[in-house]
């Protein structure tokens, strides 16, 4: 930004300075101090400058810069180490999470299996008990049916006797004579047969 601002400004400055310099050129004609090599100081400053530069170079190269390099290297190894550690920790965490997930899934499936087995077992036991009960009931039913049939049969047998006796008594009372036994038997038999109960 400042760069954009400067060139025109610098042009103006240069123009003004050159204008003034041309005026000042006369006073500068005796020479720039920089080019006054007659002055022993001009060359002396080079000698001292060379000595100072050499001393600075040795100090920087031997002491200052290695010290900075050491700090930078320390940081580099530290950051690298930390990043490696972070990556390793992350990997470890990831495997741990995966293990936990796997264990959870395994436990869940095992629990499901045992639940299923228990339910199966319970169902089977219930079915067994039901079957036994059914069998017993069936048995009792059959026994009862047998008893009922026997009772009915005996009752039906008694009906014929009762009917025969009743018929003979009724006939003897009505007619006053003893009816033929055989005939009554046949009549009762016929009547029973007609009702389908003989």
């Amino acid at each position: 930004m400042s760069r954009r601002l400067f060139p025109p400004c610098r042009f103006a400055c240069l123009a003004a300075a050159l204008l003034l310099l041309s005026g000042a050129a006369a006073s500068a004609a005796e020479g720039m101090p920089q080019l006054n090599f007659a002055n022993p100081l001009t060359l002396a400053q080079i000698v001292w400058g060379a000595i100072i530069f050499a001393v600075l170079y040795v100090i920087f190269a031997r002491s200052s810069l290695p010290q900075v390099a050491e700090v930078l290297a320390n940081r580099e190894t530290r950051i690298t180490g930390d990043l490696e550690a972070a990556r390793d920790a992350k990997a470890a965490a990831d495997t741990a999470v995966a293990e936990v997930n796997a264990a959870t899934a395994r436990a869940r499936s095992e629990a499901q299996a045992s639940i299923n087995a228990a339910v199966e077992q319970a169902k089977k036991e219930a079915a067994d008990r039901a079957r036994v009960l059914n069998e017993r009931l069936e048995q009792q039913l059959q026994t009862s049916e047998g008893q009922i049939a026997a009772a009915r049969n005996s009752a039906l047998g008694a009906i014929r006797e009762v009917a025969t006796d009743t018929a003979r008594v009724m006939v003897s009372r009505l007619t006053g004579r003893t009816p033929d036994r055989q005939a009554i038997d046949d009549a009762v038999g016929q009547a029973l047969a007609a009702r389908g109960q003989a």
Binding site: L20, A28, M32, P33, L41, Q45
Partner: peptide, 11 residues
């Protein structure tokens, strides 16, 4: 006078 170069004199 403008002594623009005096500043460069060595002492």
């Amino acid at each position: 006078t403008i002594d623009a170069l005096g500043q460069f004199r060595l002492f």
